[in-house]
Design a protein around this nucleic acid. Structure first.
Lengths: 141, 141
DNA sequence: CATGATTTATTTATATATAAATAGTTAATA
DNA sequence: TATTAACTATTTATATATAAATAAATCATG
């Protein structure tokens, strides 16, 4: 395998391991996966938003959100409810259990971020973030 | 959303966009996805290897390899065959179409890597790779 | 040699993600 | 107003990945 291919492989591996570890830690602490925690963080500040709004905020397809919310709802973390006059619209609300889970996830995620950054200088972290952002802006969705 | 959470989010987004783009380019050029191309690259140098060997090389679960090889086999890119005396073992062989596809993928992947690195200095790329490798070694599978 | 452990591959269940098609509702405009 | 656009959410199909259970074969060792 050449160096060229390994570059992409490295990013994939690093991302995968980070998410797998965070998944495990969040699942243990709050019964929530990393992908699900993203929805919780958004709902903490936009409780009651529409599925479509969550879709745009998390940069996920509407159908992915349907499944994500299904799984959160079956765990009692959120609930769907229709409140607006627009009969197409469905709002998502954090339950009390959901709010508690979100707070636990936040603690775990912060600890995890510190662990990831350990041993790296502020400057290195800055360069790393800058390149990630360049990649993201260079390859729009 | 705080800075802490965005760090993980950034890595996920960057990885996702890179793989989506590479997926599209490889699919157009050779009818192959990025994940499948990884198997092809390994097979170019280890043609006829076992499923289990591919599993270890790509750092994927055996069941993931079963599905991956199923999809490649249905496209006529590889074929399963039993050759060794161990009756559990199944070898994977690139077909002629598979070898042609692998060569096309290699060209596309190299071009793609150059596009990703464009506008970044050698030093920045070095720091970026170093951090990815640190993350990978800090979080073993 | 016989039993238990390991290896090889598959299957099933679950989670994640996209794309395309659908259904119902609302908005825009000709 | 009638028709077309767009929006909201879901469903279906496909691809990817893990974990756990299974089945068959082989290995190791007591």
């Amino acid at each position: 395998m050449e160096r060229d291919e390994r570059f992409i492989f490295l990013i994939g591996q690093a991302q995968h391991r980070l998410f797998t570890r965070l998944d495990q830690a969040l699942m243990k602490a709050a019964g929530i996966t990393a992908a699900q925690s993203g929805a919780l963080y958004y709902l903490m500040e936009h409780d009651g938003c529409l599925l479509s709004e969550l879709s745009r905020a998390l940069l996920l397809d509407k159908s992915a959100i349907t499944g994500l919310v299904d799984r959160l709802e079956s765990k009692g973390i959120v609930e769907r409810c229709r409140t607006s006059s627009d009969r197409r619209a469905i709002n998502i609300r954090l339950t009390e259990a959901g709010k508690a889970a979100a707070r636990k996830c936040l603690v775990v995620t912060k600890e995890f971020n510190n662990a990831v950054k350990e041993g790296l200088s502020e400057q290195e972290i800055g360069t790393f973030s800058m390149i990630l952002q360049k990649i993201i802006s260079r390859f729009p969705r």
